[in-house]
Amino acid sequence: MIQANEQLDAKGLSCPMPIVKTKKAIMGLDQGQVLEIQATDKGSTADLAAWASSVGHQYIGTVEENNVLYHYIRKGSNEPEVEKAFEHTVALEELETCKGLILDVREAAEYAFGHIDGAKSIPLGELESRLAEVDKNEEIYVICRTGKRSDLAAQLLVKNGYPKVYNVLPGMNEWNGNITKEI
């Protein structure tokens, strides 16, 4: 089961209803939260992917189970880009030669649809309460999709006394290496 903040039941509905319902449902979510859309309309996969890209949300992916399509969309932001503040960064290409923990701070659904083999998943919003799971002595390479959330996560780790933290830039959206899926 892939984790999402809200579920929308659009099963049995035909085009354009899954899109119309999704538009309404996503208004109730906070930026960065994930909506699961359950649909049986076969066209909804292509439609939702196109819709998300057109209105500025992130289409994460779709799984099919017992003839039901489960689509995952992460609500985009209309806020301006914030300047990345964390100084210690490593380039994505250098990651393969790095030893230490790769900490993936994207939402659980994003992680499920593809992450670097061996990366540990702790979504940014849960990091503060799950610090006990991260070893202070290890080098930590924090990654997200574009480097924005990992920037905040890296700052949070340093504030909590982690000495060896690096933000991996740009992030999974540029990653061309192998990925592991949990779907």
Binding site: C15, P16, I19, V20, D47, V55
Partner: peptide, 11 residues
């Protein structure tokens, strides 16, 4: 109406 509602839902 399918095109119209889909377009409106796409802002």
């Amino acid at each position: 109406f399918n095109i119209a509602t889909a377009a409106a839902a796409s802002e």
